[in-house]
Write a protein that binds this DNA or RNA. Structure first.
Lengths: 209, 209
DNA sequence: CTCCTATCTTGACAGTGTAAGGATATGGGT
DNA sequence: ACCCATATCCTTACACTGTCAAGATAGGAG
C-alpha cells in the first residue's frame, strides 16, 4: 500500500492522466490514513484538508461527504487512535505477570509504547484542540482509555485521588516528553534498556511504595 | 489614492471614530498581550494574525514589522512564557525551606503553578509546533527552564538518568493534565489542599525515595 | 428500462498569511 | 526654519484554505 491505488481500470488507459475511478471504494479509510501521513510529515500546523484529499487522489471537497469538515476528520482519527492506544496497553498486560502491580506497570508501559511508536497520533489525542471530544465516538473512546489506568490503580491497592493522579501523571509525563523527543537520556536507549528504565520509573508512583 | 481613511487626530477627538494615532507607541508589547488574549479566548486552532492585529487596533500587516510572521509572534510569546515559567519556580523556591529536597519539590510546584495559572501559555510552550525553538531567544529560554529542574534533581542527590526523568515526567505530567483540566480530582481542590497533594505526589519521584 | 441514493467533482466565496510598495511620524543635521 | 533618513504603519495583491451549492457519475432496486 504505497502509492495511490489505481483501481478499477474498466476503461482502457486512453487518457493521458491515469483514469481515476469516480468511486474510490474505501475513501473513508484512505482519507484517515492519508491524514495521519500528512500529520506525520508536515505537522499539525500545516495540516490541510486539501492536502489530505490530494494525497488520497481525490478532489478537495470529497472528504466532506465522509467527515463533514476538517474537525470531523481529525475527530474520527483521534477516536481510532484512542482505540489503538488502549490496545497497546492491553498488549503489554497480556505479556506481563498477572498480579495487580505488574499489570499496572504494564499498562503504563503500553501508554509509553504508543507515544513512542505513534507520536503523531499521541499529540493529536492529547495536545490538540481540533478533535471534538463531545462527539460520542471520540468521547467514549477517550474516557475508556484513561479510565483503564484508573481501574488498574484501584486494583493495585490505590485508594486516594493522589494515587490515581501520581500514576497517571507519571505515565503521561513520560509519554509526552518521549513523544516530543525531549527526554534524550531515555529515548535514545535501545528498546530493552528503555523498557527496564520506564518500568522502574513508573513503579515509583505505585500506591504504597 | 483610494477612499481616504478617517485619520489624523489633529483636533482632539473631533471625529466620530476613535482617532488612532499612526504610531502606536509600544505596539510590540500590545501585540504580545493581544496574542495571549486571543489564544485564551479562541484557542490555538482559531489563532489568526489578523485577529490579533484587529484586537490591538492596528492593520493586519502591522505585526510583520515587529515579528516577521505569525510564527515569529508565537515564538516571541513562548520565549516570554518560558521566562515567566522559570520565575514561577523561583517564587516557590524562595518561599520554601532551603534544603535541596524542599527546593526540588518547590520547583515542581512552581512548574504546576504556572500550568494552572496560565494554561494557554503552557500549551503554547509544550503542546504546539508553531513556536520555532531554533530561534536563540526561545531556545535558550526553554533550555534554561527545564535545565533548572535537572539541576535541582542533582542537588537533591539524583545520580541517574532515571532520577531526572522521573521528577521531570511527574511534574510535567501533573502540569499538563491540570492545564488541560483532565485531573478533576486534583484541579477542583482549593489552592491549599491542592498544594499539599501536589507536593506529596512530586515527592514520590524524589531520588532515593 | 427508469429512478433513487450515495458518492465524487466542479465552481464559488470569505477568510488567512505574507510580500511589495506607499504613507506617515520622529528626529538629526544644516 | 528647512530637509531628509529612518522606523513605523497602511494599502494592495496573491496564493492558499475551509466550506457551501449544484452538477456529474456509478450501482442497485423496482
Amino acid at each position: 500500500m504505497s502509492a495511490t491505488p489505481p483501481r478499477l481500470c474498466d476503461g482502457p488507459t486512453s487518457q493521458t492522466t491515469v483514469p481515476r475511478p469516480y468511486h474510490h471504494g474505501d475513501l473513508r479509510a484512505a482519507l484517515l490514513q492519508a491524514a495521519e501521513e500528512e500529520l506525520a510529515e508536515r505537522g499539525m500546523e500545516a495540516f490541510s484538508l486539501r492536502s489530505v484529499a490530494k494525497r488520497a487522489g481525490v478532489s478537495h471537497a470529497a472528504p466532506a461527504h465522509h467527515f463533514g469538515d476538517a474537525q470531523g476528520l481529525l475527530t474520527a482519527l483521534a477516536a481510532d487512535a484512542f482505540r489503538q492506544f488502549l490496545a497497546a496497553q492491553a498488549a503489554r498486560e497480556a505479556a506481563a505477570e498477572t498480579d495487580p502491580a505488574s499489570q499496572l506497570v504494564a499498562a503504563g508501559m503500553g501508554y509509553v509504547d504508543f507515544a513512542i511508536a505513534r507520536p503523531t497520533l499521541f499529540r493529536l489525542m492529547w495536545q490538540s484542540d481540533r478533535p471534538d471530544f463531545d462527539v460520542p465516538d471520540l468521547g467514549l473512546a477517550a474516557r475508556a482509555a484513561f479510565q483503564h489506568l484508573v481501574d488498574q490503580v484501584a486494583a493495585a491497592g490505590g485508594r486516594s485521588t493522589a494515587d490515581e493522579a501520581a500514576v497517571w501523571a507519571l505515565a503521561h509525563g513520560l509519554a509526552d516528553l518521549l513523544a516530543s523527543n525531549r527526554l534524550r537520556g531515555v529515548g535514545s536507549l535501545d528498546p530493552q534498556a528503555r523498557d527496564v528504565m520506564v518500568a522502574s520509573i513508573i513503579r515509583r508512583a505505585l500506591p504504597g511504595a
